[in-house]
Amino acid sequence: MTLPKDKTEYRGVWVFLEARRGRLRDVSRQLLGVARGLAQTRGSDVSGVLPSWNVEPLAREAIEFGADRVYLVEDPRLETYTSRPYAKVMATLIGKHKPEIVLFGASKNGRDLGGRLHAMIETGLAADCVKLEIDADGNLDMIRPSFGEKSLAHILCKQHRQQMASARPNVFPIPPRDPARKGEVVREPVEITDADLDAKVVSFEERRGHKGNPIEDAKILVAGGFGLRDPKNFRLLEDLAKELGGAVAASRKAVDAGWVPKDYQVGQTGRTVRPRVYIAVGISGAVQHLAGMQESEKIVAINLDHNAPMFEICDYGLVGDLFQVVPEMTRQLAERKARRPVPVAAR
């Protein structure tokens, strides 16, 4: 491994801009905000790298979200993400421009790309960071949960350049968009040959589901797990959620069983939620699930097994059969609502 003799040779904060079906991924926008902050501290600037096809408007958009420069690599062969040509583009440009920091979204493609690339150019890559800062020595402090969120590790890449990290989606806010922001779009020719095209994406099957982020916005979430046994039983949760004015979410096991669309998944590889009340129904409480909901204001656990780890982190626990408990809760809540006096306006 060759170590840089002079680290000051490396300048600038880069963001891999992921275009997905004509849109910039949210996480790419979020990263532009992070990159701005880091560049400010380092006294450098922010560049985006956008390999795709017919995406010039997205390059402009990236500038409006905070990039000073976007390297645009357009080729019809780059229209859909595949590992090898994208890794080639990144490696080529990194070799040419020598950035100090390269950031990826910890999306499936972001990890696929980062993992391949870091082995090719032999430098460090920290995965799934939730905080990115510059430490006293000017190094990138890459902070990420470890051991199922029971601890936060500070990862440094002191000797090698580049310092690379992927960031967990939806942890960082999307920066405000400024249509007046100026920056340059630099077209970079990277030759993609037939030899670079090993993978063919032969088909795409869209997941059934919804648009938007209802579970992140919901004040009350009723989440179901493998204990629900069957997709149709999610009705019970919908009824309860409706009574409470909340939304339904799910564990990965319920999602991977095909019961619930992926957008509803809470956890390390799903979404991070922080509702006022999180009701976990038939969810054991694996660390990867807790990762996505442990900061909820109040947590209610409903489980048959009194040893379920969810009981260890809840505010209220009910040991019982969800098929009896949940309908009963819905019923009693409705009853309470009916009994509750109309609030006096003056109070």
């Binding site: 032999e122 470890s146 029971k150 590790a153 090698h160 009981f311």
Partner: peptide
């Protein structure tokens, strides 16, 4: 290339279930 410089333990509030 990477080192773990330090590890902060996440101490969750005791929710007193």
């Amino acid at each position: 290339p990477t080192i773990v410089a330090k590890v902060d333990t996440v101490v969750l509030p005791d929710r007193k279930a």
